[in-house]
Design a protein around this nucleic acid. Structure first.
Length: 395
DNA sequence: ATGTGC
């Protein structure tokens, strides 16, 4: 095997930001992957399954493991034609609870309009998914002069949507894993494996963007509002740059001058920033969110140990509420699991990668609502009931 | 992240 010199690792975070040692170890491992020339690490850096998250990485080989299974995942921000002063949070939450029951139109037609095959996971369109994904109703907390100039409006409500390619990216990911036993070593440019993965990748990026738009359209319909797209920025993808592939893993792939959302947590502020020309120093990447401080498993026992604590986790300091009927997810996504997005943004600003345009407070965070129809169907056809009585009875 | 399942 050919030996490569380890890649240059650039840190775009300060000593004030908590960075887990395991993530730095992963960075060092990633710098020794074949073909890697340069790595940019951002303040939301944290350990991930196939390498650290919060990273942009340039390599002459394609490294699908680094992008992971949610190919095309990203953040989109929309402005609503609703003023915050009229908002009744409980009423809005009640309406948003029905988000995924709202019509999205003809999926085949929507896919066709997006230049995608009509067979591409049409039934999953407009769904949020799990994990850290959400659709959040927000109001501007603070607005810089530069924010006003870009059309951000302190007297409007906003929707921030974080979602990806659902089962589609996962299917292409495992397809690549199955086809290439040595996928960790990367795919060579122009190889059949690289061409196939890149084509699937491009579809996932377009599908995920469409998905976020449809989630927002559903939310706007539930709120009886109209909406306009402010920003749409993916953070799990690859971009070609000359001879190199730049891999973004939990790092927003930005363009100088084009607005980018940086998500806070369920109970802390989110931001909209304007990337500067200096992002050429960070491989065109910036942070995409606050970044995890504690992994999902270690949150159990750390937060939400009893019912009243869990109920508290659904409320925030601004009177906002979260809709999440999944008890484990409430705990795993507690604000305490995340770093402070304000510190993340301060580091990026200090590195001259961005200017901050506005901060946003969370009012209603839609994560997961129990589908009553589905529950009812399961009740009729119990999954674990068998004729022969093998296995445990569920009811 | 994932219809998180034999």
């Amino acid at each position: 095997m050919q030996a490569y010199p380890p890649a240059l690792i650039h840190h775009f975070f300060s000593g004030r930001t908590w960075i887990e040692g395991a993530a730095l170890d992963q960075l060092a491992e990633m710098s020794r992957l074949p073909g890697v020339s340069e790595i940019a690490a951002f303040p939301d850096l944290h350990p991930g399954k196939y390498g650290a998250t919060g990273v942009a990485l340039a390599s002459e080989r394609l490294l699908p493991l680094l992008v992971g299974n949610d190919i095309g995942c990203g953040m989109s921000l929309f402005q609503l034609d609703l003023p915050p002063h009229k908002l009744k949070i409980d009423k809005a939450a009640e309406r948003l609870r029905q988000l995924e029951a709202e019509e999205i139109g003809n999926p085949a037609l929507l896919l066709e309009e997006a230049g995608l095959p009509t067979s591409l996971a049409p039934d999953a369109l407009g769904t949020i998914g799990g994990g850290n994904h959400f659709c959040e109703l927000q109001a501007i907390d603070a607005l810089a002069e530069g924010g006003v100039a870009t059309g951000l409006d302190g007297h409007a409500l906003y929707l921030l949507v974080h979602s990806g390619s659902r089962s589609l990216g996962a299917a292409f990911f495992s397809e690549a894993v199955d086809a290439h036993p040595d996928l960790a070593a990367g795919l060579l440019p122009g190889s059949q494996g690289a061409v196939t993965w890149l084509a699937n990748h491009d579809r996932c990026v377009a599908w995920a963007s469409l998905n976020r738009r449809l989630i927002a359209a559903r939310a706007a319909a539930a709120l009886r509002a109209d909406l306009r797209l402010v920003a749409d920025v993916p953070h799990n993808l690859v971009r070609s740059s000359g001879r190199a592939f730049v891999h973004y893993k939990g790092a927003a792939a930005v363009t100088p001058g084009e607005l980018a959302p940086i998500a806070g947590s369920r109970a802390s502020l989110s931001y909209v920033v304007c990337p500067t020309a200096d992002v050429s120093r960070s491989l065109g990447g910036i942070s995409h969110g606050a970044g995890r401080k504690y992994d999902r498993a270690s949150m159990h026992g750390r937060a939400g140990r009893n019912r009243s604590e869990r109920e508290q986790l659904l409320r925030n300091a601004w009177g906002g509420i979260a809709i999440c009927d999944d008890r484990a997810l409430v705990i795993e996504e507690a604000a305490a699991a995340y770093k402070d997005a304000g510190q993340v943004v301060a580091d990026l600003e200090n590195e001259k990668l961005v200017s901050v345009l506005a901060s946003f407070r969370p009012l209603v965070t839609f994560k997961k609502a129990v589908d009553e129809a589905e529950v009812e169907q399961r009740r009729r056809k119990p999954k674990y009931r068998r004729e022969g009585g093998r296995g445990r009875e569920r009811y």
